[in-house]
Design a protein around this nucleic acid. Structure first.
Length: 471
DNA sequence: TCTGGGGTCCTAGGACCC
DNA sequence: TCTGGGGTCCTAGGACCC
């Protein structure tokens, strides 16, 4: 039987801030996305803030309403990544089978006996026992693996507190697959430790929780299940597989399994995870706009940010995806709930990591899909993507968010670099630009057209989900 | 005052090539 | 006049996660 530990740090960014700054300890703290307080949400809330009902993802004004004394701290991605590297270093002592799930979450598989790292795994496990002074040998009635795992989990918690900081706490779930380990970890917060050791315990837990408490059932799937008369796992378990397949296609099998606590997904250790599949940025403008010049500047900046990250990872990409969201219009959408209108489109060009080329592709797409532009295109007989937009005479709605991402990535090999003098010159310019910016900060050197731009923060987003860590 | 920003995976359908 | 089938690439759209 597999033994999986899921480790989830509680109120991660907030506790890291409290650890770093003693004056924040014991106080309600909210971590924000930077200096901006308008149109932004909390990236994390401390335990003390949560007591007031403040939650991660809440808007600033809402959090302030619930807890006027909340201390807002701008997020610092470097600090969080650094802390993550440190706790991963500790976890590696217990098994090489370590999957990094997000900046504050990971899975560990203990006692794996097959595969190339099994020797290391066994060594690591015995080392763990030695370190915590625990002699393997479970009390009667307890599955040996799980009892040992529980001891290891306790020891991991101790080490994190001792080596990283007493304010950094984590919840650990232990079970026989990833799905149930993650669920176990979510049952007790903060600083929890829950074991789901067998089928019987799985059923007991599943029958007590809501459908969307399990990883993989979000609001949409939940609603569709509700429409089928399924409101809990007990009922879901009674649903025939055929019915679920008919409604959810292949995902029906996943739901069928979930209701029984079955999950065959393998743990993918960090050293087997591939490179990233896409790199993107999006930006919500602090005021709504339909000014092309303004949108152009934002897109240029996003393009340069994406390109710089591609170059930093030594990647090129060829699929450019641009999308936007229109301003929220309460008057016209209030009855239909939270509806945001927007559009997006992707286009494949040649492999590149040049911000200007990425921008040019994105700008072309933008002109094809933005209804206001479509209206002009209709009038002038130019290319219009959306006939409805033409008929409606264009859309007067303003834009609140634009996003840009590059996918279809591949590593840059020396032979891929063009030998054309113009391209070589461009490459040289870009390299110099990167060097200066690496040393003196993002956008120290930038394209002239960006000089007026103050629209996007200089620092990268602290909530950026870096799923790759160098260990 | 009115939901941020970073990702992943999956499916379906069309175009195109051999 | 007119078409089989496999493979691959591309795009759109939906859903989920932290």
């Amino acid at each position: 039987m597999k033994v999986i530990l899921h480790i989830d740090f509680n109120s991660y960014f907030a506790t890291v801030e409290q650890q770093a700054n003693p004056r924040l300890r014991g106080k309600p703290v909210g971590v924000t996305g930077g200096d901006r307080l308008k149109r932004t949400v909390l990236g994390a809330a401390s335990v003390e803030a949560k007591r007031f009902g403040v939650k991660t993802g809440m808007q600033i004004w809402e959090a302030r309403k619930l807890c006027p004394q909340i201390i807002l701290v701008p997020g610092d991605s470097d600090k969080y990544l650094e802390t993550t590297k440190r706790f991963l270093g500790i976890l590696k002592d217990y098994t090489p089978y370590l999957e990094v799930f997000s900046i504050d979450e990971c899975f560990l598989e203990l006692y794996k006996t097959r595969g190339p790292a099994s020797q290391v795994s066994r060594r690591a496990s015995s080392l763990a026992f030695a370190r915590c002074g625990y002699a393997p040998g479970p009390p009667p009635g307890c599955h040996p693996s799980f009892c040992d795992a529980e001891q290891i989990a306790l020891y991991i918690k101790q080490r994190i507190k001792a080596e990283i900081g007493e304010w950094i706490t984590c919840s650990i779930g232990i079970s026989y697959n990833k799905l149930m380990a993650k669920l176990a970890g979510s049952l007790q917060k903060p600083d929890g430790l829950v074991v789901i050791a067998n089928q019987e315990e799985t059923m007991k837990v599943l029958d007590q929780i809501a459908l969307d408490e399990i990883c993989g059932i979000g609001p949409r799937i939940k609603k569709r299940l509700n429409n089928l008369g399924i409101f809990d796992f007990k009922t879901l378990r009674k649903a025939p597989l055929e019915a679920l397949l008919a409604s959810f296609k292949s995902y029906g099998q996943t739901l069928y399994n979930m209701a029984r606590g079955i999950d065959h997904s393998p743990l993918i250790p960090f050293y087997e995870k591939g490179e990233v599949k896409s790199i993107g940025h999006r930006h919500t403008i602090d005021h709504d706009t339909n000014q092309e010049a303004e949108i152009k500047q934002i897109l240029l900046k996003l393009s340069e940010m994406v390109a710089a990250r591609l170059r930093a990872k030594n990647l090129v990409g060829k699929t450019i995806h641009l999308w936007y969201r229109e301003a929220f219009n309460l008057a016209s959408h209030s009855s239909s709930g939270n509806v945001f209108f927007g559009d997006g489109m992707q286009n494949t060009i040649h492999y590149t990591h040049d911000g200007l080329e990425i921008f040019q592709a994105a700008w072309k797409i933008f002109h094809l899909i933005w209804p206001a532009r479509n209206a002009t295109a209709c009038e002038t007989g130019g290319p219009a993507r959306n006939a409805t937009a033409c008929k409606a005479g264009g859309n007067k709605n303003k834009i609140r968010m634009v996003g840009l991402s590059v996918s279809s990535l591949k590593p840059v090999l020396p032979q891929n670099l063009s030998l054309l003098p113009e391209t070589a010159k461009q490459e040289k310019i870009i390299k110099t630009l990167d060097k200066v910016n690496d040393k003196f900060g993002e956008f120290t050197l930038q394209r002239g057209i960006l000089l007026d731009s103050t629209v996007i923060r200089r620092k990268p987003n602290p909530f950026l989900s870096e799923r790759r860590f160098k260990l």
